[in-house]
Nucleic acid binder design. Structure first.
Lengths: 278, 278
DNA sequence: CGTCGTTGTATCGGCATAGATACAACGATG
DNA sequence: CATCGTTGTATCTATGCCGATACAACGACG
């Protein structure tokens, strides 16, 4: 409560990272973790090189790194991830190494993680500020400028530092990936009881950022400046834009263009609630 | 060529990571990267501690780490991320440090990344194998056991090693997050032309893994073992199950229970195509 | 004007990781 | 049985990061 002078400094505006496309342009790095041992891009490259060269020695020289280290690294990884490389010494060609099935699976898993991370960095996101209104299990309802939204909080905690579950009244950011937002042409076209998409809003297309075959539509959503006027200042009359990633085909099929009135919809389970740094 | 004995070893089965829920249970670690400088959980904790303590010195002692190091680390970060901490020496209390607005934004951004990563680790995913049938810009059509699916490939490449864009005919894994899958009660309830969700399948609920307020439904989808019998062996008669994350409320409202016939639907832009380790 | 706790800055030692090197063990091949 | 290139294993060294320590600069406050 004593933070009125500080936190109160920005109640009216929506700040830079509100719905910025390149706010998420920053790159990231991902690593799997098992029993405290990280599997990162360097390890993935090593396994791939082993697969290509057919030997750890060849992989090491290919990557320009020490063979002994590469071998011990593989042993360390295998201590936590199970057998990854089948090594054979002596014999044809002096021996050799092959990836095991689980080694390949691990690579695939890493690639998936990497793909997801890359996507979060390059796919637009909509970030709304809000305060937690209610918590039901893993779900929470958040009061935002566009009304109440529900989403998941604290799914699969990792770092103990900043990802704790919020409590009612806490300030949170509501993150909605543009790839999770579905656009319908009219408000009544979809029977709201027939789908599992939970969050729905009406809005107007303000811009379509066309890509080759994938475009980003920005939809302006009316803020309900009247509904929860209990805390007055917080519901300033501002427009919130939600980003939706659409294929060119969908845009054409739905006949979408700036000015169109549409209804957007996304699943509560695709909505992440993240504690906000005060 | 010599891999006929190897790659050919698993053409028939779908292997462990097909639709495994705990295949994604492995934890991960994320870090932002800007100009080669990583911002990880340790840095986030440092900024948070500075915010809480009001000084770098206090933060360092709070975290049990060297003050000089903490300071130089902050300087390193600021060299790539811009001013993060406003430091003042002398004056009331001898001086002190405060987070800048961009410092707070960076923390929020990190928390969002962390939340997304945690979600990918804990939210079930469906992974299908397939081969690329066509590529249109950022989109690609993939032949899978359940027919043709479209999804994004190579969105925002990061590591140059394994995330390259696939070509027609390449083996890929198709990743569908359970939080992106929408469930409808009947096939005809939703006008397929009225929504931007592109991929649609019919299936039968085989299991509902109930959580507190969020449940995972597994939907068995018929494989079209007849359509593309060109390459015979690949279309073995198998059932593919797709995971969908649903709120308990949605399950109740739609009256979902095992045995129900449902239609599932998800956006092409929420589908990731990842190169498969041969 | 002295006190105080902080921000700056520099230096030293410890520790973990990686590269470099060397040598033994292995087993098919000729 | 000698050859070959690999897998195992051990040891030394270099490097980089971090903690620890020390000291100067600063500016409000009493």
């Amino acid at each position: 409560m004593g933070d009125a002078s500080e936190a109160g400094g920005t109640p009216e505006a929506t700040d830079p990272p509100e719905a910025g496309p390149d706010a998420a342009a920053g790159r990231g790095r991902a690593a799997l973790i098992e029993e405290g041992v990280e599997f990162d891009g360097r390890d993935a490259a090593l396994l791939r090189a082993v697969d290509a060269a057919g030997s750890v020695a060849g992989a090491a020289s290919e990557l320009g790194r020490s063979r002994a280290r590469a071998l011990s690294r593989i042993e360390t990884l295998e201590g936590s991830y199970g057998t990854l490389v089948e090594r054979r010494r002596g014999g044809e060609g002096g021996g050799g190494s092959r990836l095991t099935a689980s080694g390949r699976d691990l690579l695939d898993r890493y690639d998936r993680l990497q793909a997801v991370l890359a996507a979060t960095a390059s796919v637009p996101e909509t970030v709304l500020r809000g305060t937690v209104a209610a918590i039901h299990g893993e779900l929470a309802v958040v009061d935002t400028a566009v009304g109440e939204l529900s989403g998941l909080h604290g799914v699969g905690e990792i770092g103990g530092s900043g990802g704790e579950s919020p409590a009612v009244g806490d300030a949170v950011q509501v993150r909605i990936g543009a790839d999770a937002v579905t656009v319908n042409e009219a408000a009544g076209a979809v029977d709201p009881d027939a789908t599992s998409a939970r969050n729905a809003l009406a809005g107007r297309i303000v811009e379509i950022d066309a890509g080759e075959t994938v475009s980003t539509a920005r939809i302006a959503v009316d803020t309900d400046g009247s509904e929860d006027d209990a805390d007055g200042a917080e519901t300033a009359p501002q427009t919130v834009t939600v980003a939706a990633l659409l294929t060119a085909e969908s845009i054409e099929r739905l006949g979408l263009e700036p000015g169109n009135q549409v209804s957007i919809r996304w699943k509560a389970t695709a909505t992440r609630l993240v504690p906000r740094a005060e």
